[in-house]
Design a protein around this nucleic acid. Structure first.
Length: 562
RNA sequence: GCCCGCGUAGCUCAAUCGGAUAGAGCGUUUGUCUUCGAAACAAAAGGUUGGCGGUUCAAGCCCGUCCGCGGGCACCA
């Protein structure tokens, strides 16, 4: 990657200057290379001389000049300049830039890959919403962030597995079952009261009717607890099927749907509980079992198993944290992932230190765990809050948003802002804006290129490799340079776990293409030079490929026509 | 009360671990189509980066302190 090349050139320049006695000896710090604010200043720049001023005790500009003078020649670099107060600026060599088109085309659909992960296995666990109702907009943000992150990490050289953790072990399943039972009995014509703490959403009644139509009245003939349990199971299966289909509409597919309940059925929970006990991190208080988190520096201890007085049913006594203990062991030890990434709503941030504490307590390397938090999405309609509680009803599902806005625009909107910024999602505005959503600007560039290639075929033009060295127009070079940036965007997004950089890159790339398209005729009759036509066709094919890859990294489609 | 996130153009958001004149999209204004897709291009207007103080060559970013918004501090999930 060109950015790394330049970093190494700066390093060589410093070393050479030191060897020549032009700079004193010092340990070279980490070298940052970024882009100057204006293109005429160059393509890449380093502010390292400013940082070295304290160490070297010389004016930064003088340091910059000394380093610049000692940087070895390189085919990729056309010009090295220094600028006040102490920058070293690099301009890429046009001849080198234009030939990079060939490399981009050769890399094909995998252009943009970087090898950070070296094939290590990473799991991204995301969404994992309770299976008690359709996916809401917060779940959609989770899906967009998690899946894009998975795609980016895949491009960054990790072997990725996507996982949905199904919370099928808690008391919410029983509540959901009771709600299902009530709606089912009501649908069968019985006057049955709806539970106080039930799930009031209309979807429960829809599921109940579905069951009644399919299985008849048979659940009314069995003891109510039995019927509630079975209807709960049936209901969650229906919910999961619906959630799965919603996620598929969003281009999200999982490798594993992992059952929380299986952590108990397999005996794993008992095993890790004993491990915590062996390390004297458990104690009983008022018939509940506590994890001594304060021994690991946390502010409070936390309950793992609640007391029988409060929770009669033994299966419902373990808390979320209890499952998390077994789950983190399952991920890191039983399934041996090198890295695991959790994507959580920020409402769970209080649980973060506890997960790290239990991992530490189990003797696991916490550096393998990362928990990415995203702030809430507030759904509004015309500026007014829309409630999103599954139990409260009055619920706008992701399916409805998808119906109105479409998956491409939805995904793009949900990853445009950084995860730790809360966002308002106004339905009215989203529908209104969906037609001039930025995502269409990017897709339009792609469709336009497809149109050019169709046009070339219609003119019976045989596409050859082309001599890309002919691409020397400023707009051509700007487009190629923009394409080359994809590699560093992938690297950056993967390193920082910040998928939102992709949307901004995609817009810049589409803009660079549009500028080129406006300035540079490609096909006859506007273009009369056959060699230049072939070179530009090569450029256009490369641009199409990079646009498609960028969109694909976001889970957005690349249309041939719009 | 304590903890976490946020506050940037009218709106939605960026800003590559502290770098150069804070950038895009939408909206507004003005130009550009009898031929490769005008869902486009070119340009303009729009900012005391919530306030005040501090750290240093340099602060939207770090520190302190206020103000405002959201979230968390359960034997809830």
């Amino acid at each position: 990657m060109i950015r790394h090349t330049i970093i190494e050139l700066v390093r060589s320049g410093i070393s050479a200057a030191q060897a020549a006695g032009a700079l004193p000896a010092f340990e070279i710090p980490q070298i940052e290379v970024s882009h100057p604010p204006k293109p005429d200043m160059g393509d890449y720049s380093s502010s390292l001389p400013l940082k070295l001023a304290n160490v070297v005790k010389r004016p930064p500009l003088q340091i910059a000049q000394t380093i610049a003078k000692h940087i070895p020649a390189n085919d990729a670099i056309g010009k090295i300049e220094t600028a006040a107060p102490g920058f070293v600026n690099f301009t890429l060599a046009p001849a080198w830039v234009s030939l990079e088109v060939t490399r981009i085309l050769a890399a094909g659909a995998r252009f943009g890959d970087v090898n950070l992960g070296e094939g290590k296995r990473a799991q991204v666990e995301f969404v994992s919403a309770n299976p008690t109702g359709p996916l809401h907009i917060g779940g959609a943000r989770n899906a967009a962030i998690g899946d894009t992150l998975a795609r980016v990490l895949d491009a960054a050289g990790y072997k990725i597995e996507r996982e949905y953790y199904i919370n099928d072990a808690g008391s919410q399943i029983r509540h959901f079952g009771a709600s299902m039972y009530a709606r089912y009995a009501q649908a069968a014509g019985l006057d049955v009261p709806f539970p106080e703490d039930g799930y009031k959403g209309a979807y429960v009644a829809e599921y109940a009717q579905e069951v009644l139509a399919r299985d008849g009245r048979k659940y009314l003939d069995m003891p109510q607890p039995e019927a509630t349990r079975r209807l709960g199971r049936i209901g969650t299966d229906l919910v999961i099927a619906q959630v799965r289909s919603t996620l598929e509409r969003m281009q999200v597919c999982y490798d594993t749907w992992f059952s929380e309940k299986s952590l108990y059925d397999s005996g794993l929970f008992d095993k890790v509980l004993k491990m915590l006990g062996d390390r004297s991190l458990l104690y009983e208080s008022e018939q509940a079992t506590w994890f001594a988190a304060t021994k690991l520096g946390l502010e409070k201890d936390a309950v793992l198993i609640r007391s029988p007085q409060i929770i009669p049913n033994p299966e419902e006594r373990p808390t979320y944290l209890a499952s998390d203990v077994a789950y983190v062991w399952n991920k890191l030890v039983e399934r041996k992932f090198d890295r695991v990434i959790y994507v959580w709503g920020a409402g769970h941030h209080g649980d973060v230190p506890r997960v790290f504490a239990v991992a530490q307590a189990l003797g696991l390397d916490t550096a393998r765990i990362q928990i990415l938090l995203y702030q809430n999405v507030q759904l509004t309609r015309g500026g007014e809050r829309v409630t999103m509680s599954k139990r409260g009803g009055n619920f706008v599902s992701t399916d409805e948003v998808l119906d109105e806005v479409g998956p491409d625009a939805l995904r793009f909107m949900l990853i445009t802002s950084s995860a730790n910024a809360a966002m308002d999602f106004d339905l009215q505005l989203a529908v209104q804006q969906s037609n001039d959503n930025p995502v269409y600007y990017v897709q339009y560039a792609h469709a336009r290129i497809a149109g050019i290639l169709r046009n070339a075929a219609a003119q019976s033009i045989t596409v050859t490799d082309g001599n890309t060295a002919l691409l020397q127009h400023p707009s051509e070079l700007a487009l190629i340079k923009q394409m080359l940036k994809l590699e560093q965007v992938v690297e950056f997004a993967a390193t920082k776990l910040e998928p939102h950089h992709l949307t901004h890159y995609a817009l810049e790339l589409a803009r660079a293409f549009s500028g080129f398209y406006d300035d540079c005729p490609i096909l006859p009759p506007k273009q009369t030079d056959a060699d230049l036509m072939q070179a530009r066709l090569a450029l256009v094919r490369a641009a199409k490929q990079v646009l498609a890859r960028t969109l694909d990294l976001m889970g957005v489609t690349s249309p041939e026509t719009m």
